[in-house]
Every structure is written in structure tokens, then in C-alpha cells.
Write a protein that binds this DNA or RNA. Structure first.
Lengths: 210, 210
DNA sequence: GGGCCTATGTTATAATACTCACAAAGGAGG
DNA sequence: CCTCCTTTGTGAGTATTATAACATAGGCCC
């Protein structure tokens, strides 16, 4: 299990494989080949095997992979063996939607608190999850051992929220605000820009139209 | 202006440059160098110039780029010169949040309708945008000349919704459901899996911890 | 228990994307 | 008007990622 440099595209695909395997497992499928995985997720068999090869040998030659075992291995690789506590900053439309998004819990992410400075929202709950003022971020983060923060505030506030989260002790940030933010090197940062995704589509539409 | 193969990463960066340039323009900045853009968005000057070089020459040697002109060029490249009409399928938490997300309108995307089969929601409006039953998708899509559909329904319904959108005449789909879906070759498809983004973070946390 | 068959794991090859360094071009100043 | 200075645009070299081909290993059947 050599831990050289793993392409991010590989990690994304592993996530997708895992989701697919979970689905197969629910349907009672016990064994699958790299080719079948590839068909299921829209890839190639070689790519599937290459992705897995970064982390070890999980299959049986001539047979394929055990669905449940492989999924457990991938979940372990992705660091999802244990649950993760998450906080969300911003109780607007997007923040509220993310707070109540069931897909997070299914993959082991537990939203323990939402932060917002709107006094009309503080004290309320979203699907049982309490809304606190941002001033209490550090307290809650330490108390609940939160390692991941999600930023869902308007762009102008994104950097100061990031600073607050870092100060509070969060080790990874998922930023939904359409603004480039900077964090210390030891904090993982990932940006999800909703509009950018639409822009890639319109670019491609323009390319193929000719 | 040779239109060979443009890396997707380049398109993503162009979107980010554009956002940054818009911000600079609002602040009255008129001229900028590739190095300053790089600083602003967290990249390298060479990368900025290379990205732009795919599409032409936009700067003045010894001076830099005109902020407003460059932004207009990038907007044109991304296909954002004209407004795009968009429909969203799914009026749950995520669909509602996306419908009311201001970042889309800022970038030229106009949400004209939401579809949902929940009879308690049909007929209501989200920030003025009407909710219709999915059966009316084809009618509305044609009437409003919609080219882009956003899927924000639970995973099990994602494929049938995609089929419906394709049938209705949509040419690009942004899929938020955590399920691999397939569409005809002439339809652009892009997936945004919210949980996958968190999983990349946890993978990286695991890597750096050792 | 030995040979055949199948799907894996791996190595080699190709394609793609990034980095660096430099020459060319425009503007400013004398 | 010529020279110097700055920053672009580009082309070569490097690194990374994906594709394809192949040898290996495990199971199954006779």
C-alpha cells in the first residue's frame, strides 16, 4: 500500500464506486467485476482497477470483487469508517437546505450545529439542529469535536467566516460562497461554486453548437 | 483562435477569473496583470496567461489587461453573453434553495419554473417562481425556450427526471442527485455530488494526519 | 489434482495538463 | 525617435493522468 500521489479524480471516482456498491449491496448483489462497476458508473474497467490499485488488492482473479467487502475498504480509504461532526455557517436558503440534506448523514456526516447572526433565526432549529450565533462557534466546535465546517454565507462574508472557523479549530472547510478564500496550509479547503457548474455547461453548449 | 481541446480545469478557472474581475470592476480597478489575477484567485501568472491564450490575445504587453474588457471577453467565451433560462426539478430543501439562489441570476441564469409532483407544492411560488407538476415540463420548456435543467430530487427519481427533461428538449443537465444518470450524447451532463465533496476532504484529512 | 478459463493487478504506452523560461511587443521617458 | 523596461504570448520541457495490453493468480470442472 504505497501512498504516493493519489489523483483527486481517483478519489471522486472512489466515492462514486462506493455509492454504487452500497446500492448493489442493498439489492442483494454479492459479487461484481470491474467491468460491471464501470458500466454502472459510466467508466472503463481499466480505470476502476487502476483506481483501486493505488490502495491494495481487493479482488479475486477470475472472480471479481465482493461487493460488501470492497465497499467497506473504500469507505475506510475515504476516511468514513467513523462519523464526522460538521457545522454549517449560514442559515439562509442554501445553509438550511444543506443542514437538512439527508445525503450527508447517509455517508457518515453529522451536522451538529448551524451558525447565523440573524437574531430572528438564532434559537430556532432546522430539523432538530440548533442555530447559534457565530460568536459561539469556537465553543461548539471544541465541545462537539467538529473537524469540518461548511460555509454557506454571501460572498462578502466568506473570508471572515473562514477565519472564524479556522480560529475555532476546524481542520477542513467546504466553501459554497462564490469567492476565493484563503486558509492556513494545514486546513483542507474545497470550493463548490454552483454557478461555475452551470457555466461549464453553457461553455460546452457553445462549443458543440458549431 | 484555435479551438483545439480546452481542459475543463481551464474553464473552471476562467469562471473564477471572471468573478474576480467583476469584483475588481465594481471597485473601480481598470487594469490588472496576470500576476495580480493569479494572486487574487490563488494561481500562477503563467497559468492565467495560458488559460487565456487558448482563446486569443486580450492583453497589452508591458501593461496588462483591461479589467472590464477582459471580463467581457471571458463572459463571451463562457457563453454568458445572453441570459439562459433554467428549470429546476424538485421543490424540496435543495431545489427550493437553488431556486432562490441569487448567484445564478448574477451570472445570467434565470430560473423560470420549478417542477414537483407534491400536490401541496404545485401552484405555490418560490420567490415569485411558479411550481408546476412535472407533467407540464415539456410545455414549459418549449414555451420558455429552456435549455438547462437542474435535477434536485431524491436519487431514485433522478434517472426518470433526466429522461423527462431530455424528452422535453433540454440540452444540458446539472444533476445534484447522488446517482449516476445517463443521457444522450448530445445532452451535456454535469454532476454535483455534495457528499462527495465532503469525502474528498475527509480523505485528505486522513492522508495528512499520518 | 491438473489444466482451462476468467478477471485481476501491473507494466508500458499514449494523451493530457502544467511549469518554466524567453523572445516579442507595446509604452514611457529622455 | 530611439532605448529601456515591463508584461504578455508562446514553445519547449516536465509531470501527471488515462488507456491499453499482458502476464499472473485463483477457481472450477473433469
Amino acid at each position: 500500500m504505497k501512498t504516493l500521489k493519489i489523483p483527486e479524480a481517483t478519489i471522486i471516482r472512489l466515492s462514486v464506486y462506493s455509492r454504487y456498491l452500497t446500492q448493489l449491496d442493498k439489492n442483494g448483489i454479492t459479487t461484481i467485476s470491474s467491468g460491471e462497476i464501470a458500466d454502472g458508473v459510466g467508466g472503463t474497467p481499466a480505470q476502476v482497477r487502476k483506481d483501486l490499485a493505488y490502495f491494495g488488492e481487493f479482488g479475486t482473479r477470475g472472480v471479481g470483487y465482493n461487493v460488501r467487502d470492497l465497499n467497506e475498504q473504500i469507505i475506510k480509504i475515504l476516511g468514513l469508517s467513523n462519523k464526522w461532526n460538521v457545522v454549517i455557517v449560514g442559515a439562509g436558503n442554501l445553509g438550511s437546505a444543506l443542514t437538512q440534506y439527508k445525503g450527508f448523514l447517509e455517508r457518515g456526516f453529522n451536522v451538529v450545529a448551524v451558525f447565523d447572526n440573524d437574531i430572528n433565526k438564532v434559537g430556532l432549529r432546522l430539523s432538530g439542529i440548533p442555530i447559534y450565533p457565530i460568536a459561539r462557534a469556537e465553543e461548539i466546535v471544541k465541545q462537539e469535536r467538529v473537524q469540518i465546517g461548511i460555509i454557506a454565507v454571501p460572498a462578502p462574508y466568506a473570508q471572515e467566516v473562514a477565519d472564524t472557523l479556522v480560529q475555532a479549530g476546524v481542520k477542513a472547510i467546504l466553501n459554497f460562497a462564490p469567492r476565493v478564500i484563503s486558509v492556513p496550509d494545514d486546513v483542507e479547503l474545497r470550493n463548490v461554486d454552483l454557478a461555475v457548474n452551470l457555466e461549464i455547461l453553457t461553455f460546452n453548449l457553445g462549443m458543440n453548437k458549431k
